[in-house]
Write a protein that binds this DNA or RNA. Structure first.
Lengths: 235, 235
DNA sequence: CGGTGGGTTGAGAACTATCAAATCGAGTGG
DNA sequence: CCACTCGATTTGATAGTTCTCAACCCACCG
């Protein structure tokens, strides 16, 4: 399939894993992990590369080690909706299921730790801790997905953008000043709107003095309260 | 809280449970279940009754025994989005989490088997089978939620209604003829649109001869292919 | 027979998408 | 260092959808 396998082969593959104590694997003890690690492969991914295809048989799952991935679903005529994102230490893929319901595509260069789904499923069944970690993540993802459904179904473009910016600020650690990990088109795909609407709403917020946009990717929140107001009633 | 507790008290509460071999409990063996059952209570619910509130501490979880529930989230100003539905044998509530992210409200009269979350969490940790069953459900719910995000974010009113009708027909067993379990307002809340738009789209489909609407709740699909077409490209 | 609670229909306003053109920014090669 | 190019973003004009508000209908009930 053309993945780029890293040089490291046997031995303790996890030793230098950047996410070894945040990923689901951290639920395993050292012995379990050592055995489990044999099934996994560290693989580099390039921006734009697709790891998993919507509708394909679910044969792979992975932990993200570096970089950012998007989960997306498309209509037959090419409209795309981003349904989730996964960064370092997050889990992607569909365990315990015949097919994958989403595309998984790299938004940035990065690397993942890839497992054949069958091996992973077996390990999850054998080690309750791993399964519990998966359940925790699935439940959290489910809460997030459902929260986003409210945004997609019921919020105006204004509210969508404001909510999105607050969400991003939170993820960046609650700071007022951060870089967007997404381009305008991807923001549109996430919010269920168009690139032009995203652009217009951003410049509206800028003109209102609520945010500043020093460069394409950078955002400064100048008036968090006002932004919060628009996230709730920005009709 | 005013729940209506049923008369049955001790003994084998599960014996006459209508969903005993489809609910998550079916992952337990008889001995486990007997012990587990002591923590649960069968409770009747009336149409409109809310079991769980969005944002409240998560103290209860439940298996639905009879009837249908909706999961919903609301904005501060009262707009509502339905984010899921639960029928007989489905599980509701937020295990392993401090707060519930959704409202759970009965759409019809029915009954549920209610557990204090703490007891349920403990049981899930002790019995891997139960946890696995929960994971399976969470993953399926997650797939469904994400699929619905595509509809909410990217589909036109026409496509939403057509998709909804096909979905309902599937759930009813793939028949061409079924009763809607939801009123117009609830369909609107599910599809992220308004009651008027739902009504208009339905009459459009009726005028086109694709469906018939013999009564308020009943739908007949006359031309499934045409309906499928509108679910994909009904712009 | 007058309520009542859905549901439908109509008209106009408000948003948002669409299409097209102008701008911007980072590279590139001279 | 400057013109030039390419992709991303912004802006403008316009068309379409969908929402909103209001009136009307209809089946059912006391």
């Amino acid at each position: 399939m053309g993945y780029q396998y890293s040089a490291e082969s046997g031995g303790d593959r996890c030793r230098d894993c950047p996410v070894r104590d945040r990923a689901v694997c951290s639920a395993l003890d050292d012995g379990e992990r050592a055995r489990f690690a044999r099934a996994g492969r560290r693989v580099g991914v390039r921006r734009g590369q697709r790891l998993i295809w919507e509708g394909d048989p679910s044969t792979l799952v992975a932990n993200v080690m570096e970089g950012m991935m998007k989960l997306s679903i498309s209509t037959a005529d090419g409209r795309e909706q981003i349904v989730g994102a996964a960064g370092a230490a997050d889990f992607v893929g569909r365990p315990f299921g015949a097919t994958s319901g989403q595309n998984v595509t790299a938004l940035t260069d990065g690397s993942v730790c890839l497992f054949p789904r069958a091996d992973f499923d077996r390990a999850a069944r054998d080690h309750g801790g791993l399964e519990h970690a998966l359940l925790q993540r699935a439940l959290k993802d489910l809460d997030r997905a459902r929260g986003w459904m409210l945004l997609l179904g019921r919020k105006s473009a204004q509210e969508k953008i404001a909510t999105f910016l607050l969400d991003m600020a939170d993820r960046a650690g609650g700071v007022a000043d951060f870089d967007l990990p997404l381009g305008r088109q991807q923001i549109a795909d996430l919010l269920g709107t168009t690139i032009e609407t995203v652009s217009r709403q951003l410049t509206d917020l800028k003109r209102a003095g609520i945010i500043a946009l020093p460069s394409r990717r950078r955002v400064e929140i100048c008036d968090r309260e006002a932004l919060r107001g628009r996230a709730e009633t920005g009709r």
